[in-house]
Amino acid sequence: MRLIPNRAWAATLLFTAFALLPLIAVWLDDIYLIVIATRILAYAIAALALDLILGYGGMVSFGHAAYLGIGAYSVAILSRAGITDLGLHLLAAICAAAVFALVTGAISLRTRGIYFIMITLAFAQMAYFFFVSLSAYGGDDGVTLAARSTVFGQPLLESDTALYYTGLALLVGLYLLAVAITRSRFGRVLTGTRENPVRMQAIGFSPFRYQLTAFVISGCMASVAGVMLANQTSFVSPAFMDWHRSGELVVMVVFGGIGNLLGAIAGATIALLLEEWLAILTEHWQILFGLILVLVVLYSRDGLTGFFRRRL
C-alpha cells in the first residue's frame, strides 16, 4: 500500500521513457529500434495480462501464447474478409479470446497445481494444431498480411512510429485497467483466493467464478498483444502460439517480479533485450538464455519467485 505513490511515479517514468523512444531512434537514425520497441510493447501487454492471473490470482497458466495467436489470426482472418479496421480487429480478437478462455478456463480451473499447468499447456497446443490445420491460412507456414490494420479507414499504421504509439496507448490503457482491477472489490477476492482459498470460501466466496472471470479478462488482454504483434510483423503463423512462447511469457512475468504489473512490463523489456543482446553474441543464444534462467532459479534464495516477490 505504501508503495502506491512510488508505483505511480515509476509508471509515469517508464511510460515517458517509452514515449520518448522514437525521438531517440530518429536521433540515432536507427529505425530497427522502433521495431524492437514495438515488439516489446506487444509482449509487455501479454505479460501484463499473464501477471494478472499468475501474480494476483496464483494461476500458473502455461498456455498464454494461445491468446497471442488468437489475436494475430483475428487480424489475418478479418483482413482476408476485407475488414481492415483496427477497432474491429481488436473486438474480434477479444471476443474470440473470451470464448476460448471461458471454455478452457472452466475446465482447467476444476484442477490445481501441476494439473492446471499441464492442462493450460495442452489447450494452447490444441489451439496451435487448430491453426496448423487451417490450410486456407497457410497451415504451418502461416500467412503474410497484405497491409496493416486501418484506423478510420485510413492506413495510418503503415508508419512504424504510428504503430508504436498505438501500441503504447494500448499498453498504458490496459495497465491502468489492470491496476484498477487489482485494487477493486474483484481484485481483493482474486488476491485473497491466491493467499488462502479455503479462507475465502469460509467467508462466503466461491473462488471459481472469480478465478474464471480473471482468466477470461487476462485472455482478452493478451489477445490485444496478438493484434499488435500481427501488425508489427505483417505476418501470422501458428508459431505465435508455440509453447516456447508461453514459457517466455512466464519468464517475462517472473523476471519483472510477479504480482507487480509494472514489473511485468519491465520483465518483457528485460527478456526481449536480453534475447536481442545474446543473439548478437551467438546464434545459439537459447543456450545462454536457458543457462541464465536455470542459474537464477537455482541460486537465488527462495527461488526466483521468492527473490523477485514484491509487496502488493
Binding site: 501441476i114 512466464v250 519468464v251 537459447q286 541464465i292 534462467l293 527461488g303
Partner: peptide, 24 residues
C-alpha cells in the same frame, strides 16, 4: 534443488533446460 520449490520455479528451471538441451 527444486523439490521443495514452488511449481513456478520448477517450470522455469526445466523450461531453461529445454532451451539449453534443444539448442545444444
Amino acid at each position: 534443488k527444486l523439490y521443495d520449490r514452488p511449481h513456478l520455479d520448477q517450470v522455469l528451471a526445466t523450461f531453461g533446460l529445454v532451451m539449453i538441451i534443444s539448442e545444444g
